[in-house]
Computed example of a mutant assay.
Amino acid sequence: MALINCKECGKQISDQASSCPHCGAPVAGNPPAPSATVAPLAAESVRKTSTYKYILYGTLVLLVAISCMGGGKTSNTPREFNATQAIFLCEHAIKQVSRDPEKAEVPMVSNVGSGDEYVFVWGPQTKLTRLRNGLGLEVGVPAVCKVSHAQKKMTSLSVDGKTIF
Rank of each mutant, 00 (worst) to 15 (best):
A25E: 14
K11A: 14
W122Q: 03
K73E: 05
K146Q: 14
R130M: 11
P107W: 06
S18V: 10
N76C: 04
R132V: 12
A25Y: 05
N76P: 00
L3V: 03
V97T: 14
C9F: 10
G123D: 15
Y118A: 02
K7P: 05
G123N: 15
Y118N: 01
K153W: 00
C20N: 04
L63T: 03
P142K: 03
M69K: 10
N30A: 04
G70N: 08
Y57D: 03
A65T: 11
L131V: 06
A36V: 10
S98A: 14
R130W: 10
C145P: 03
E91C: 00
T129S: 11
K146C: 03
K11G: 08
V119K: 12
L135V: 13
G136M: 03
M154D: 00
K146H: 09
S45G: 03
A17R: 06
A2S: 10
E138T: 15
I164W: 01
K53E: 05
V61I: 15
M69T: 05
P21M: 07
P78W: 08
Q85K: 10
E105S: 09
A2M: 04
T155R: 06
S148F: 11
A42N: 05
G161C: 03
A150K: 13
E80P: 01
S158K: 11
P124W: 01
P78V: 11
E44P: 00
D100N: 15
M69P: 00
L135M: 15
P78Q: 09
D160A: 15
Y118V: 08
S114A: 07
P124V: 07
P34D: 09
V159Y: 04
S45E: 00
S114I: 02
D100C: 08
S35P: 03
L3R: 09
S18P: 07
A2E: 14
I94T: 02
M154K: 03
I164P: 04
P32S: 13
S18M: 13
T163V: 14
F81K: 00
N5P: 05
S98N: 00
C145R: 05
K153E: 08
K146Y: 02
Q85A: 07
I94A: 00
K162L: 14
G113H: 12
S98D: 01
M1W: 12
R132Y: 13
A86Q: 05
A2F: 06
R130P: 00
G115I: 11
G70W: 01
Q12S: 15
D15N: 14
T126P: 11
V46G: 01
G140H: 02
A36Q: 13
P31C: 06
G161T: 05
D160M: 05
S45R: 09
K162S: 12
E102Q: 15
F88Q: 14
T77E: 13
E8K: 14
P32F: 08
K95I: 03
T163D: 13
R130D: 11
L41Q: 13
A33I: 09
T155E: 04
Y52V: 00
T84F: 08
P142G: 08
S156W: 02
D100G: 04
K146N: 09
V46C: 02
C145N: 03
A43W: 08
